[in-house]
Design a protein around this nucleic acid. Structure first.
Lengths: 211, 211
DNA sequence: TTGTGCTACCGTACTTTGTACGCCTTACTT
DNA sequence: AAGTAAGGCGTACAAAGTACGGTAGCACAA
């Protein structure tokens, strides 16, 4: 009665990899660790992927597909844009530890390209010039990614660490002391919504003046 | 007549490391490469730093010191805040490839802490509650960092690569096609200024309503 | 002059991680 | 029954961080 383990597939490898990344971080993911999680010898992974990079790419694709899958909403261009970026934000929040992957990979996956195409469609249809549409994408994209990196940072360098480094020096930092733990407590989704609205409003005004 | 090379010092190691990071990227920096650049054997580096991480930390400190050194400006709180973030932005633009270091390290260096203390001083003095001050920092910080990561991305995945991946699929992406190269051409500093202004304006309004 | 100790630097070797290469087993086909 | 392809494995090597124990040159006291 042999122990029959789950068969190794691309999908299973990707799922396990994402699990490791989410719980232990990107740097904890290595081929031996991943193989062990799958109950298999390291070299077996290479039957399904040519190398580690390909696995990371597949992880990015998987994440992107799940969050950016089918975003086709109605409404004003503001509402539709907001929805598109809400999807991106969700992605970034769901897997902050995979962010470096997402940054370099998402827009190069089919789902990512679709998302981008959709966004450009919305903006051009609303009357933005190609130039202005690119600007909207750049600014909102940077803002959204930035929030993701802030999230990642708070995972990798917990507030206690920073506070620990400050003990004994509070006298030098009276204002930091006053703000204190507020720096660690953060209703990020609410702030994301605020920032997005403010920027969108600005773009709307520009559009009105130009159009 | 022996060839006398520059003596190895902490400063020299940091400068060489930053040079390698700036020109070849973080992943190109390893102890053997760094030693070779200094004209020295790898283990000699360990006389000046306990390990590689310490070198990276010193690089972060050096960068932070240069850009956030002494920022003590007069003016309205908006002007002072803008100046502080302009410094951060400058830092991020000057060494985009060192961004991952900066993200985890800058606020943990003396210069970074000073910057933070200064910022909190400006905001609290302006009448923001500690809570609101933290919010300003979070949002503007994420925005600024996000732009930095966008810069890094454009270095690591050049526009030609992405465009190359799209050839043959343009029919599927009519809107992307219309925007085309505009996506790669980006007056980022101008957009940084715009974004910063818009967000600051919003914070000013909130302050007015609350105060 | 000789010993003592300190600073800067180096050689060797071990560990971790990615992966090239080729073998083995299983299951299905003919 | 024999062939064959897919999936899995064992061995081995290269790149990179670094522990450990030197050595060489200099300063200075006895």
């Amino acid at each position: 009665m042999a122990i029959t383990r789950e068969p190794l597939t691309r999908l299973r490898i990707v799922e396990l990899a994402l699990g490791i990344i989410d719980t232990e971080g990107l740097s904890a993911l290595n081929m031996r660790r991943l193989a062990a999680a799958a109950g298999v010898q390291p070299m077996s992974l290479y039957h399904h992927f040519p190398n580690k990079d390909a696995i990371l790419g597949a992880v990015a694709e998987s994440i992107a597909g799940a969050a950016l899958g089918d975003q086709r909403a109605a409404g004003t261009w503001q509402e539709r844009t907001r929805l598109l970026f809400a999807g991106l934000y969700e992605l970034v929040q769901a897997h902050p530890r995979a962010l470096p992957l997402i940054t370099t990979g998402v827009l190069r996956t089919p789902s990512g390209r679709h998302w981008m195409e959709e966004l450009m469609g919305v903006l051009l249809e609303a009357g933005f010039t190609p130039d202005a549409a690119a600007r909207v994408y750049h600014l909102l994209g940077a803002f959204t990614l930035g929030l993701g990196y802030a999230q990642l940072l708070s995972l990798e360098v917990p507030a206690e660490t920073i506070i620990g480094e400050l003990t004994g020096h509070w006298a030098d930092y009276p204002n930091l002391l006053r703000v204190g733990l507020q720096l660690a407590i953060w209703d990020q989704p609410a702030d994301f919504a605020t920032g997005l609205d403010v920027l969108l409003e600005r773009f709307a005004k520009e559009l009105g003046e130009a159009g």
